[in-house]
Design a protein around this nucleic acid. Structure first.
Length: 920
RNA sequence: GCUCGGGUGGUGGAAUAGGUAGACACGCAGGACUUAAAAUCCUGUGGGCAGAAAUGCCCGUACGGGUUCGAUUCCCGUCCCGAGUACCA
C-alpha cells in the first residue's frame, strides 16, 4: 500500500473545510491561546516557498496547543490596501479592488494546499468597508483625544476645553505642538477657527506642517520606515524633503511607555534593541544661551547630553531650516546665508547621505555668550544640525564631539580640550571618561560626576533644566494615493470637521484614473462629488500601516457591527500570545500597532497594554539559483566541473528543471526556444549546474512555488522539510537537495503500519526498550516545540523511526501516540493513519500523550573514564556512585588499571551521566 | 561609525548553567534485490599517521592568547560575514 499523499491530503482538507474543524468560539471552560501570523499583502506573484515558513511554524504550535487542551484562536486575513495594486491600476486601468480580489483567491488556494488550521470564518481584509470602518473610527477617536503627560494617558478633548475655559493652558502638561500661553479669558475670547487651531496642536491625530519624505515618482509622501537610504522601499525611486501640511499621529506622546513596556515582552533582545534605538531616548539638559544680532537680544535654547563640556563650547550651530536663522542673520551676512539655505534645501536626502563627510556651513553674523566662560562665541548655520531633533540648535564642543571637531577644523574655530591628558591633535575625544580640566568648578571631577554636577549648576542659575529627548517622531498619516482608507474628515471654512460615527464607513469612491490630477492633487480629487453636505472631503488616504495596526483585535470579533471588538470577546482573547512574522516590521508595524493598542487601552476599549506578548521572527528564505555555462559564441553548454577549460558565460537556469544540481536536459531544451538544439559537454553522463544564493526573484529563475512541492512530495513533506531546513529564526537559502530525506521519512513511517502489505498494527504489549523509544521522543518533541526548535524535533522523529525499525516494532501501544505526536507537523498523514487505526474522532481531539520519565531513566550507564582529561576507556557503572566505588572499579578493570598502577589519585570528578575524570 | 547577531565536515545543520564534537539529513562510495531502471534495504564517510585486521595514536569548532583536570561553549585581543541604524548633539 503506497503512501498516496495527493489523495490523502485532498481528502482531509475537504473534510476539515466541510466540518469547519478549526472554527473556534469563546469558551470559558478552556484556557485560551492566540496564535497569529503577520497577515500577507496579496501580491500578484502569489506565494513562493519562503512565505509559508512562519505560517507552518505557527500552525505547528497551534495544533500542539490544541492537543494540550487549549482553545486556540488562529486566524488569517489580508493586508489588502497597498501600492502595487495601485501601480498596476495606473498601468492597466483595472480597479485595484478587482486585482486584489483575484490575488486573494490565488493566495487562499495556495494556503489551503498546505493544510493550515486557520479559522477562516474570522478572515479580515483591510480594504473592505466593514473592516476599514474601524480604522476610520480609531482615527476619529485619536482626533478626539489629547495626551495628558501628568496622568500619562490619553483623555477626551472636552476635558481639555474645560481646563482652557477656567484656567487657560498654563497648567496643562500635554504632548503637543508649539502653543503660546493663553489665559482663560483669552481662550473664551477666541473665535471658532482660532480655538480649533489651538486644539489641533493637542489632538493625537492632528493636521500639521512638517518636512516630509516626498517621492515625486510615486506622487506621494512616505513614512521614515518606507524609505531606505533616500530611496523608496517600494519601487526604488529617489525621495526628497518637502514641507507639507499632513495628518499625523502623535506617536511621540507614547515614547516613554513604548520604551518601558518593552521590558514586559517576550521578544528577542535584538528586536527590542531595534525598537529602543528607534525610540532613541536620551537624557540631558535644555540650556539657554543669550544671543545678539547686534540690534536685538534673544534667548536661544539648545539641547545637550554633555552639559559637562560647557566650558569648551566655542561656537553654536543652527539647522538651516531653523526659525532662528532669519532672526540671527545680520545684514552683511544675509546674501551668503541665503545662498547656503538655498543650497541646503535643494539637496535630496540621498545627496546628503552621500556627502556625509563633507563639511559645509556659513556664519550668521550673530554672537552668543557662553554663560559659564562669558566668552563671545559665533553662531553658525550648518546642515549637520537637524531641525527635527532637540531644538534645532546646538552648542558646539569641538574637543569632544567629532562632528563639531570637523566643523571647527574646517572653519578654523577654537578647540579647547576639557579632559586631562586627552589627545585632540587628530580627532576629538568623544568617550565619556577621564578627569575634567579647563572647566572651572568642574575641574578634577570625573566625566560621570561632572555631567550631573553641571546640570545642577545650570538649574541653580536658571540657565536651563533637565530634559529627556526622543528620536521617535510623530507618524505622518496622509498619503496622496487612491488605494487606501479615506479620511472621515471634511473641511468647513478651512476647519477640519470629523464625520460622526454613524456616518462611517466613508467609502472609497470610484474614479476613472488612479493618477494624481494635473494640478498635483491626490487621485481622490478626480472623484465626482467628493464632498459632505457640500463641503470638500479630505483627499488624502491613510497609509499602509493604518489597516494593520489593529487587525489582531478585529479577529477576536470580526463580524461585530457596533464595535471594533466587544468587551466580552476582548476580555476572553485579551492579546496575542504568539506572534510570528518577519523582522522587517520592527520599526514600522510593530511600533504603530503598540501605539494604537496603548491608545485604545487608555480609552478603555482593550484590556491589555501590549498587543503581542511573545514574538518570533522567522528568517527569510533566500533563493538558490542555478547556472549553466555556455561556451562563448556557440550553443554548447559545459558542465560545472569542466567549465574551466572553456571560455564560458554564466547563465541563470530555472531551478525547477534542476534536481540536486543536475540539469534535466530535455526540460532545458523545452524551457527556452533558443536552447532547443543545445549541445552539452557532460561529466559522468550528467550536466552539473553551478549555484549561488541570491534573493528569490523571477529574473533569477529561482522562485519555487509551494504548489510544485505539494504536487511532487505532498504538503506534509513541505511542512516538515521547511522546518528541517534549520533554525526558524535563521535566514537560509531554499535548497531542495535535502527534501528526499524528509519524504523518505514519511514513506517509512507510513510503511510501519503495513506489516504484511495490508494495514495493521500489532496489539502486543510493548517492551521496556520500545517504551523508551517512545518516551524519549515525547520528551524531546515537547521541549522542542516549546522552544520553537522545530528542526531538531523533526530529527527526533527520524531517530525514533530508525530505532523502531531496528527492533522491528509496529505495536499499537507505540505507534498510536507517535501518530498524535507527529500530527502538528504532518497533519494529513496523521489524520489518515488515525482513522485507519479505528478512531472516528480526528487526531486533534485526542489528548497529547504525556511524557513518562520512568521509561527514560536508565539504571546503569557506560561511563567514559578519562585520566587527567585524556579519554581512556569506558566502564559500565550504576547510576549513583561514590568516588571510592569508581576507583575500585577502575583498578579492577583490565584496561584502566595500568593507568592507575602506582599513581596517587588527587581527585575524582564525576559529571552525572556524562564522564568521569580521574586526576592523578 | 555605532548597536546586535554569527563563523563547526563536501552541504544543511546537531551538541553550550564547560564534560565522549560532528546527532539527524543530504551528497558521495561500495554492496544486496532486479533482465534493467525506479523504489527499497545494508555498510562506510572530518583530516592525518601506524596496522592484514580488530584497533591505536595525533590534529581538528575563523585566528592568537587566557582561566580550567577538561573550552565549540567562559574571558581578552584580531580577522571575516550578516542584520539594524545613520550627522539624534
Amino acid at each position: 500500500m503506497e503512501y498516496n499523499f495527493l489523495e490523502i491530503e485532498k481528502h482531509w482538507q475537504s473534510r476539515w473545510s466541510q466540518e469547519q474543524t478549526f472554527k473556534v468560539k469563546e469558551d470559558n471552560s478552556k484556557p485560551k491561546f492566540y496564535v497569529l501570523d503577520m497577515f500577507p499583502y496579496p501580491s500578484g506573484a502569489g506565494l513562493h516557498v519562503g512565505h509559508p515558513l512562519g505560517y507552518i511554524a505557527s500552525d505547528i504550535y497551534s495544533r500542539y496547543k490544541r492537543l494540550k487542551g487549549f482553545n486556540v484562536l488562529h486566524p488569517m486575513g489580508y493586508d489588502a490596501f497597498g501600492l502595487p495594486a495601485e501601480q498596476y491600476a495606473i498601468q492597466t486601468g483595472q480597479h485595484p479592488a478587482k486585482t486584489t480580489e483575484k490575488n486573494i483567491a490565488r493566495y487562499r488556494e495556495q494556503l489551503d494546499r498546505i493544510g493550515f488550521s486557520y479559522d477562516w470564518s474570522r478572515e479580515v481584509r483591510t480594504c473592505e468597508p466593514e473592516y476599514y470602518k474601524w480604522t476610520q473610527w480609531a482615527f476619529l477617536e485619536m482626533f478626539a483625544h489629547w495626551y495628558n503627560n501628568n496622568t500619562q494617558s490619553a483623555q477626551k478633548i472636552e476635558t481639555l476645553i474645560k481646563i482652557f475655559e477656567t484656567d487657560g493652558n498654563k497648567n496643562v502638561c500635554a504632548a503637543c505642538g508649539d502653543v503660546a500661553l493663553f489665559t482663560a479669558d483669552e481662550w473664551n475670547g477666541m473665535g471658532e477657527k482660532e480655538r480649533e487651531e489651538v486644539l489641533m496642536q493637542y489632538r493625537l491625530a492632528y493636521l500639521g506642517e512638517t518636512s516630509v519624505n516626498w517621492c515625486p515618482a510615486l506622487g506621494t509622501v512616505l513614512a521614515n520606515d518606507e524609505v531606505k537610504e533616500g530611496i523608496s522601499l517600494r519601487g526604488g525611486h529617489p525621495v526628497e524633503q518637502r514641507k507639507m501640511k499632513q495628518w499625523q499621529l502623535r506617536v511621540s506622546a507614547y515614547a516613554e511607555r513604548l520604551l518601558n513596556d518593552l521590558d514586559t515582552l517576550e521578544w528577542t533582545d535584538s528586536l527590542k534593541d531595534m525598537q529602543r534605538n528607534w525610540i532613541g531616548r536620551s537624557q540631558g539638559a535644555e540650556m539657554i544661551f543669550k544671543v545678539s544680532n547686534g540690534k536685538e537680544e534673544f534667548d536661544l535654547e539648545i539641547f545637550t547630553t554633555r552639559a559637562d563640556t560647557i566650558f569648551g563650547a566655542t561656537f553654536m550651530v543652527l539647522a538651516p531650516e531653523s526659525e532662528w536663522v532669519e532672526r540671527l542673520t545680520t545684514a552683511d551676512q544675509k546674501a551668503e546665508v541665503d545662498e547656503y539655505i538655498k543650497y541646503a534645501s535643494r539637496k535630496t536626502e540621498r545627496e546628503r547621505m552621500a556627502e556625509t563627510k563633507k563639511v559645509t556651513g556659513v556664519f550668521s553674523g550673530s554672537y552668543a555668550v557662553n554663560p559659564f566662560t562669558l566668552e563671545k562665541i559665533p553662531v553658525w548655520i550648518s546642515e549637520y544640525v537637524l531641525a527635527g531633533y532637540g531644538t534645532g540648535a546646538i552648542m558646539a564642543v569641538p574637543a569632544h564631539d567629532s562632528r563639531d571637531y570637523f566643523f571647527a577644523k574646517h572653519f578654523n574655530l577654537p578647540i579647547i580640550p576639557l579632559i586631562e591628558g586627552c589627545d585632540i591633535s587628530q580627532e576629538s575625544f568623544d568617550a565619556k571618561e577621564g578627569v575634567m580640566c579647563n572647566s572651572g568648578f568642574l575641574n578634577g571631577m570625573s566625566v560621570k560626576e561632572a555631567i550631573p554636577a553641571a546640570i545642577d549648576e545650570v538649574e541653580r542659575r536658571a540657565l536651563g533644566k533637565r530634559k529627556v529627548n526622543f528620536r521617535l517622531r510623530d507618524a505622518i498619516f496622509s498619503r496622496q494615493r487612491y488605494w487606501g482608507e479615506p479620511f472621515p474628515i471634511y473641511y468647513k471654512d478651512d476647519i477640519a470637521v470629523p464625520l460622526t460615527y454613524d456616518q462611517l464607513p466613508l467609502e472609497l469612491p470610484d474614479i476613472d484614473k488612479y493618477l494624481p490630477t494635473e494640478s498635483g492633487e491626490p487621485p481622490l480629487a478626480r472623484a465626482e462629488n467628493w464632498t459632505h453636505n457640500g463641503y470638500p472631503l479630505e483627499k488624502s488616504t491613510m497609509p499602509g500601516f493604518a489597516g494593520s495596526s489593529a487587525y489582531y483585535l478585529r479577529y477576536m470579533d470580526p463580524q461585530n457591527s457596533t464595535a471594533l471588538v466587544s468587551k466580552e470577546a476582548n476580555e476572553y482573547w485579551r492579546s496575542v500570545d504568539l506572534y510570528i512574522g518577519g523582522t522587517e516590521h520592527a520599526t514600522g508595524h510593530l511600533i504603530y500597532s503598540r501605539f494604537w493598542n496603548k491608545f485604545l487601552y487608555d480609552t478603555g476599549r482593550v484590556c491589555e497594554a501590549e498587543p503581542f506578548r511573545k514574538l518570533i521572527n522567522q528568517g527569510m528564505i533566500q533563493g538558490r539559483s542555478n547556472f549553466v555555462y555556455r561556451v562563448k559564441g556557440t550553443n554548447k553548454f559545459v558542465s560545472l566541473g569542466l567549465k574551466d577549460s572553456y571560455d564560458t558565460t554564466e547563465i541563470h537556469v530555472d531551478v525547477n528543471i534542476v534536481h540536486n544540481d543536475k540539469l534535466d536536459l530535455a526540460a532545458f531544451k523545452v524551457w527556452m526556444p533558443d536552447y532547443a538544439d543545445a549541445e552539452f559537454i557532460l561529466e559522468n553522463d550528467e550536466y552539473i549546474c553551478g549555484w549561488a544564493v541570491e534573493k528569490m526573484s523571477k529574473s533569477m529563475f529561482n522562485v519555487v512555488n509551494p504548489d510544485i512541492i505539494c504536487d511532487n512530495y505532498g504538503a506534509d513533506t513541505l511542512r516538515m522539510y521547511e522546518m528541517f531546513l534549520g533554525p526558524l529564526e535563521q535566514s537560509k537559502p531554499w535548497d531542495t537537495n535535502g527534501i528526499d530525506g524528509v519524504h523518505r521519512f514519511l514513506k517509512r513511517f507510513w510503511r510501519l503500519f503495513f506489516a504484511d502489505k495490508t494495514f495493521g498494527v500489532s496489539e502486543e504489549r510493548a517492551t521496556a526498550a520500545e517504551l523508551k523509544i517512545l518516551h524519549k521522543l515525547i520528551k524531546k518533541t515537547q521541549e522542542d516545540i516549546e522552544n520553537f526548535s522545530f528542526n531538531t524535533s523533526v530529527s527526533a522523529f527520524m531517530i525514533a523511526l530508525n530505532e523502531l525499525y531496528e527492533v522491528n516494532c509496529n505495536k499499537r501501544e507505540i505507534l498510536e501516540p507517535m501518530v498524535i505526536l507527529l500530527s502538528p507537523f504532518a497533519p494529513h498523514i496523521s489524520e489518515e493513519l488515525w482513522s485507519r487505526l479505528g478512531h472516528t474522532q480526528s487526531v486533534s481531539l485526542a489528548a497529547f500523550p504525556e511524557f513518562n520519565a520512568e521509561h527514560t531513566i536508565e539504571d546503569s550507564f557506560e561511563y567514559p573514564v578519562s585520566f587527567n582529561g585524556k579519554l581512556r576507556y569506558k566502564l559500565t557503572l550504576s547510576a549513583s556512585l561514590t568516588a571510592a566505588e569508581i576507583e575500585a572499579a577502575a583498578r579492577e578493570n583490565e584496561q584502566t588499571s595500568k593507568y592507575l598502577a602506582g599513581a596517587s589519585i588527587k581527585k575524582i570528578i564525576v559529571v552525572p551521566k556524562k564522564i568521569i575524570n580521574i586526576v592523578c
